[in-house]
Design a protein around this nucleic acid. Sequence first.
RNA 1: CGGGAACUGGCUCAAUUGGCUAGAGCACUCGGUUUGGGACCGAGAGGUUCCGGGUUCGAGUCCCGGGUUCCCGACCA
Length: 414
Amino acid sequence: MKQSQYFSRTSKTAPKDDVSVNARLLEQAGFVHKEMAGVYSYLPLGWRVLQKIENIIREEMNAIGGQEILMPAMQPKENWQATGRWDSLDVLFKIKSQHDNEYALGPTHEEIVTPLGVGRISSYRDLPLAVYQIQTKFRDEARAKSGLMRGREFRMKDLYSFHTTEEDLARYYKVVAESYTKIFNRLGIPALYVEADGGTFAKYSHEFQVETPNGEDVVYVCNKCQLAVNKEIFSDEKTCTDCGEKDYRETKASEVGNIFELKTKFSESFKLTYTDEDGSQKPVLMGCYGIGPSRIMGVIVEEHHDEAGIIWPESVSPFAVHLIALGGKDAEVSEQAEKLYSNLLAAGVEVLYDDRTEASAGQKFADSDLIGIPNRVIISSKTIAENSVELKNRASGDTSLVPLNQIMEKFSNA
RNA sequence: CGGGAACUGGCUCAAUUGGCUAGAGCACUCGGUUUGGGACCGAGAGGUUCCGGGUUCGAGUCCCGGGUUCCCGACCA
């Protein structure tokens, strides 16, 4: 992509009000644009990152047998009345049509996925089963805050599993937990496994929390085995469920995932039953498992940045390479840069090409630092004189001259 | 939902006690210069000062009501 034509622009000044690191950097670097409190547009840069995050999650969900579906954001009021959550869920967005019909905007999808299973799950032979979606969710938060960290409209991956027995549910719960750990590692934000409150329909749940100084949650981490406990259920006498120790450290963290055993809570409301081997009708056991990709984008920025800007992990960076041509209208430089750009594209390398002839070198470097693409390739009359380009790593700051005929090898394995 | 702060071109900010045609930097357009760490000169375009009332000869500024945003807290399937 040529930067001169890109629908995105950096700003020299940070947004006035937004203090949180992720909001400031993502807006200043041109990844997102805030429309309302907790509601964002994703510009090309931000949308690329979000899609990278979601694709990693998608790959891992497929790997554990999840079948991808898409359920509606707009949902029937009756389904929410059936579970009592039309009245009890305080963050539920309710909308009224011009014909006075009422609907819910989905904050989560148990009310849709459970009745969806009726007629499609009827025998023990149909189970176990897992379906998931990646979709925009709505929650009427009393206070949206901290950029992408708590939005009123946000992205969520929600997986739902269906089982015949508690043992099988527990088995799959573990499979998902391991998958989640893998996902957060791939995203560059290793997460703690945290015992947490089960809310209104499970005895307990597990959260995935990323340790970060600006985290909104407080968790206690076992110094021996690293199993953590959310402050909301932590007590001084608490011994570690895993290793039995009582040695904890306190830390701040941001929740990026949450998994629950719903058991029969929803299947009973919607009469989701199956016929067992002996011919009897039994309620289907369910689990639900959430990850918030948009919040993850915020957490990644909170975790990976410096004074100059964002430092994207390779796995989610909007581009693999930031190609920068210096020298204004120098024909030799732009010719070489164009050639390298085409070669990189032909090799399937995702490259953002700063082809702006009017911008100064300093401006291009500052923009590049802000945007945070991991690999910078600089081409100028200086490097051309050496028959080379300069390669600079955004994270380490290490630079090296690489001969023009070798630069492709650096990225061709991408 | 309680408390605090803020709201003026796309962005960041000025504007004396209530007083002239609401200014500047960034960004943008045109011309020129410049090109290895946010360059410079000249010209230009861009405004419902959040909205609605009120006071006044006169309101960005004062008063009343509303809205929005941010921060703290509460909340957080």
